[in-house]
Design a protein around this nucleic acid. Structure first.
Length: 292
DNA sequence: TACCAGGATGTTG
DNA sequence: CAACATCATGGT
């Protein structure tokens, strides 16, 4: 076991609320203020948990923890929970926007909970395109339960996302019975192939600029501006990535700014000038407000 | 029942 | 280049 501490700010309550946002979430489980997750490390499935109370205690459950595993998990958690960001810089930067500032006070210490695995955020965002979130979680659950591997811990199963290699083997006909549309199936299998064959990876994007990464992502069929920015903010930690087409964001903005209809992209871009450098973080806070 | 969902793509005018 | 149709299905 190890402990991540001390932090300047971390909002345990709001983080738990985020992690519990959908009962059907299948890639982590919250049990008594402790979040469990399986990651793959050196082709081995590792079940670990983080205690969301006081200091963040990390435990490894299914195998004896070695130094290098502890380091890998620590790195993962730091990225997942965005522990290295200076939140005060975000809060100060958007100070001119009194409405967002109020949200920041309300959720003070909430960090942008991400997805360290780029493949995961791409698959998840493609699943979520143009359907309601409830259905999106059902589709993800079917994909994971049908094709993902799991760790059996005291009779309870904890799943990992199927690997690109596994999904690359599938055909559209395998996913149609799970109620994936032909297009979603096609996009997912194509992206899985690109990752499996090494044509695409986080490493290959490492030395590129924001615009170059965005354009590389958009070259892939099925990834548009929304998906590219979603993944850049959730996986690649570009806090200014802005999924402006997002209906949830638009609705949250409509609610908080008391608009009579959803903002146009032009309006939203205008408002987002106050969030410069932190548009992704602002988006995350607005999304979080939808959980109320 | 019609319209909306954490959009993207291909076609048409 | 902007407008429109299409995808597929659950939720309200």
């Amino acid at each position: 076991m190890q402990v991540l501490s001390p932090f300047t700010v971390f909002n345990h309550e709001q983080t738990l609320k985020f992690l519990n946002r959908n009962e059907r979430e299948c890639l982590h489980k919250v049990i008594d203020k402790e979040v469990y997750r399986v990651i793959r490390f050196q082709n081995e499935l590792i079940l670990f948990s983080i205690r969301l109370e006081g200091n963040l205690q990390i435990s490894v459950h299914n195998i004896p923890s070695k130094q290098e595993i502890a380091e890998a998990i620590t790195k993962y958690v730091k990225q997942w929970f965005d522990l290295d960001t200076n939140l005060e810089a975000f809060y100060q930067s958007i100070e001119a926007d009194t409405i967002l500032s109020k949200l920041c006070q309300k959720y003070h210490g909430l960090r942008l909970i991400g997805m360290p695995d780029l493949f995961e955020s791409l698959i998840w965002s493609i699943i979520g395109q143009q359907i309601n979130l409830t259905f999106a979680y059902i589709l993800k659950e079917r994909l994971v339960h049908n094709f993902g591997e799991s760790v059996d811990f005291h009779g309870q199963y904890f799943y990992a996302l199927p690997t690109p290699q596994r999904l690359a083997q599938l055909s559209i006909e395998d996913l149609r019975p799970l109620q994936f549309s032909t297009r979603k199936a096609e996009y997912i299998i194509n992206i899985a192939k690109a990752f499996a064959e090494g044509q695409f990876s986080t490493e290959k994007l490492q030395n590129l600029s924001f615009d170059e990464i965005r354009s590389e992502l958009i070259k892939i069929k099925g990834i548009g501006n929304w998906t590219a920015n979603y993944s850049m903010m959730k996986s690649l930690r570009y806090y200014d990535a802005f999924p402006i087409e997002d209906v949830g964001l638009q609705n949250a903005v409509k609610n908080h700014y008391l608009l009579d209809s959803k903002p146009t992209m032009i309006q939203l871009n205008e408002m987002a000038k106050h969030w410069k450098g932190w548009k992704g973080y602002a988006t995350f806070y607005f999304w979080h407000s939808l959980l109320e």
